[in-house]
Amino acid sequence: MHIAVLAKVVPDYLVPSMDFELSNNRAHERFSRMLGLYDENAIETAIQIKEKTSGSLTLISYGSENDIQFLRKGAAMGADQLILVKGTSDDAAVIAGNLVTALQSIDNVDLVLAGQQSADMDRGVVPGILAQMLGVPFIPQIGYVDHENGSWTVTQITAQGKRELEFSGPGVLSITSIPENVPRIPAVRAIFAAKKKPVIKLESTDQKKMALNELEVAIPKIECVCEFIDVEDPGQAVRILLNRLNEERYL
């Protein structure tokens, strides 16, 4: 079983709003860089499949060489090799096209996993584009993945609940976070072993960009008009709150 996970190194997604700032229309360089939030869930899910099926796991990313140090965490968690396609584009089609090149450079990928969305652009669209380029099904928001009798059984977390789906052959799944795929803290031995795992660097190839023209990136202003209600006497506080909600026609 050979699983590929697509991951992206992004600026700290937990930077508090108050502290967030832009430079050149992107998150300021001063923020730490790290593996994307859902990408780690995807890696964890892949490792669990790998462990169950005694398979192998390739971590693929599109980004700069500087990202390798952060991708190593994925290797320490359990990926067997890293592939980095060197590039700087933010265009979903360009990223997807380059990731397809990387995927085609390795043999027999049985399943491709990606995080539900990158923690910077928040698009969630690259895995779908890539699936279409590969001609395989794409299913988003997957929690659990199982391999039985030659086909994949996956659980999609929908707005209403869950649904279990089955397909055979390769496919692309985007992974959401569930309690069972909390990323593991790599063991020390694995961290050292990861330093020796192969890193394949590929040059990016020309891809057709999407016809989107970025006009502006801005930080939305958050208004602060909070009216604090005295809670000395909870009963009184509740009455005031309900009155105010009625007065302002919220209720």
């Binding site: 700290d12 937990l14 508090p16 502290d19 730490s32 790290m34 593991r184």
Partner: peptide, 21 residues
């Protein structure tokens, strides 16, 4: 685990803090 991961990623363990440095 989250605190440790944050310490590794952000050099402090207070993940989800509302304060900048």
């Amino acid at each position: 685990g989250k605190a440790v991961a944050s310490l590794e990623q952000r050099a402090h363990p207070f993940f989800g803090t509302g304060s900048g440095a």
